[in-house]
Measured scan of single mutants.
Amino acid sequence: DKPLMPYMRYSRKVWDQVKASNPDLKLWEIGKIIGGMWRDLTDEEKQEYLNEYEAEKIEYNESMKAY
């Protein structure tokens, strides 16, 4: 599988927590909350997800070359 983009990594990490805090919200409403949370992160906080993505992207590209 292709590596997940940084925002999607963050979304997967916080989804269950946001859903548990807001059990009556629809999926798109939860997505909207998470989008706002992502925008509110500092560049340093986002960098963690970007670093994970870049590392996985290198691994993915290497595995595709071998294939």
Rank of each mutant, 00 (worst) to 15 (best):
L4K: 11
L50C: 13
E44I: 07
Y7N: 02
R9A: 15
R12Q: 15
T42K: 15
A66W: 06
I34R: 01
R39F: 03
M64H: 12
L27K: 15
R9S: 05
R39A: 15
E54M: 06
D1E: 08
I58G: 11
P23H: 01
K13D: 08
Y7H: 04
L25F: 05
R9K: 13
I34S: 02
P6N: 07
E44R: 10
K65A: 14
A66D: 06
Y10N: 01
E29N: 02
N51D: 11
D43W: 09
G36S: 11
S11T: 12
R39T: 09
W15A: 09
V18C: 01
W38P: 04
N22Q: 05
D16K: 09
E44D: 12
E56G: 04
K13C: 02
Y67L: 14
W15E: 09
K65F: 04
D1K: 12
K26S: 13
I34Y: 00
E29M: 00
M64N: 10
W15G: 04
P6D: 08
L27V: 13
P3T: 06
P6Y: 00
V18T: 02
V18L: 02
K26N: 15
I34W: 01
K57Y: 07
Q17N: 13
K2Y: 08
M8S: 11
N22Y: 09
L25W: 00
P6C: 02
I33M: 07
P3D: 11
E45M: 08
N51S: 12
Q17V: 07
A66N: 14
N61R: 12
N51V: 11
L25H: 04
M8W: 09
M5G: 14
M37I: 00
S11Q: 15
W15T: 04
L27I: 11
D1H: 05
A55T: 10
A55S: 11
Y67K: 01
E56R: 03
D43K: 13
L41Y: 00
P3F: 05
L50D: 08
W38K: 04
D24W: 13
T42Q: 06
E48P: 15
P3N: 09
K65L: 08
I33E: 04
Y49Q: 05
K65M: 08
Q47A: 08
N22L: 14
Q47N: 08
K32N: 07
L25Q: 04
N61E: 15
Y60T: 14
D24G: 13
L27H: 15
K32M: 08
E59Q: 14
E29S: 02
L27M: 13
S63Y: 08
A66I: 09
Y49N: 06
V14I: 11
D40L: 05
A20D: 13
N51L: 10
Y7E: 15
P6R: 01
Y60C: 13
Q17H: 10
Y67F: 14
E54T: 05
Q47Y: 05
V18E: 03
P23K: 06
K32H: 07
Y67Q: 15
S21D: 15
E48Y: 06
E59V: 10
R12E: 13
L50F: 12
W28T: 15
M64R: 11
M8N: 10
A55L: 09
P6T: 03
Y7V: 13
G31V: 11
D40I: 09
K19A: 11
K26E: 15
K46I: 01
E29Y: 00
S63A: 13
Q47W: 02
S21Q: 14
D16H: 08
I33Q: 05
Y53H: 10
L41K: 03
R12H: 07
E54Q: 08
K2W: 01
P23L: 01
G35P: 01
P3M: 06
E62S: 06
L4P: 12
K13S: 13
L25D: 00
E59P: 05
D16C: 03
K2P: 02
E48W: 04
E48M: 12
V14G: 00
V18Q: 00
R12K: 14
L50K: 13
K26F: 00
E62N: 15
I58E: 13
K46Q: 06
D16I: 02
M8I: 09
E45I: 06
M64V: 10
W28V: 08
I30Y: 05
M37H: 01
E54I: 07
P23R: 03
I34P: 03
E48L: 08
N51K: 13
E29C: 01
E56F: 00
T42H: 07
S63L: 08
R39L: 06
E29Q: 10
K26M: 08
I58R: 14
V14W: 02
K26W: 00
K65G: 10
E45H: 04
D43E: 13
I30A: 03
E59C: 08
K26L: 02
P3Q: 06
N61C: 09
N22G: 02
M37D: 02
A66G: 14
M5Q: 11
D40H: 05
Y67I: 15
Y53S: 10
A55Y: 07
I30V: 08
S21A: 14
K2R: 06
I58H: 12
E59F: 06
P23V: 01
S11K: 15
V14L: 03
K32P: 05
A66Q: 10
W28K: 11
I30S: 02
I30L: 07
D43M: 13
Y67P: 15
K26P: 14
W38S: 04
W38G: 03
W15C: 04
N61W: 06
D16Y: 08
T42I: 03
D43H: 07
L27N: 15
L25A: 14
E62P: 06
S11W: 13
K65W: 05
